[in-house]
Simulated scan of single mutants.
Amino acid sequence: MVITSAIVSIGIIIACFAVGLISFYPLSDWPKAEKKRHIEALTSQLLNFVIFVWVGKILLNPSLFIQDPMAVLAYPGNSGAFYLATLFTAIIVVYKSVYKNLDVLAFVEVFVHVFLVASFFYEFMQLVLGNHSYSLGYLIVLATLLVVFVSARGRLPMPRLLMTILVGWTAGMLVLTFVQPFATVFGYIIEPWFIGLFFIGCLLIVFVSKRKRDA
């Protein structure tokens, strides 16, 4: 029963990200080949993230993994595994930016679009199908950010727009952590300290990428 529930949860997340990836095509004015290239780059990193979540679960539960590997790999990980996966993914993105000529600003633009759309649909399904009342606050934050992102694209320089979305998401999540018992991202409980570190990390990545592009 628990395994079935875990499979359903994973399936919902995959479906939501598929919607986010598909929605990028009609809403972006990039050439088709460029869209395809950046979507493939993001998909690759999303797969890496899933692998890193598994790695995180193993690192956080080494003794249990030795005794019963499926007990670790088959069940959803805790927030610690999510934090480690985020850290490992950020390191990979920075590495590819420095040594593989990854256009981080373009990558982040695609990621923000897909993340906002996927998160919105996920929280909507949690609210409607799962009757999770705490999803409503985050749903409002995501809806606001989506409207801003879509309406301001092409009107504001992309670095400024990305910073606006980052600040808005960070502020919204911090407010939710104080007015609700907890705030989650795709079912993982997010602590205020992680939100702060995530904001600082993204800020540095966007700033350095902008300077590299302008150089």
Rank of each mutant, 00 (worst) to 15 (best):
K57R: 02
E109H: 15
R153L: 11
A118M: 12
S79V: 04
N101Y: 01
M70H: 01
V72M: 00
G130R: 05
A106I: 15
N131K: 11
V72C: 00
S63M: 12
E123D: 10
A152Y: 03
I92C: 12
V98F: 15
A85W: 07
F88N: 08
I58K: 09
K96V: 04
S97N: 11
A143T: 01
N61V: 03
A81M: 08
V104H: 11
V72S: 01
Y99M: 10
L59W: 07
V114N: 09
S79A: 10
P62E: 08
Q67C: 10
Y134L: 08
A90I: 08
A106Y: 14
V94G: 05
V117D: 02
I92N: 11
G77H: 02
V94C: 08
N78K: 08
L156N: 04
A81I: 07
V112C: 02
L84G: 02
I91Y: 07
S119P: 06
H132A: 15
A85T: 08
V104M: 14
V98G: 09
L105I: 15
F88E: 09
S79T: 08
V114Q: 10
F121R: 09
L145W: 03
A118F: 13
A118K: 09
T144P: 00
A85Q: 08
A118I: 14
E123C: 09
V147A: 06
S133T: 02
A152N: 00
Y83K: 04
D103F: 15
V150Y: 05
A74C: 00
Y83E: 02
L139M: 05
V98T: 12
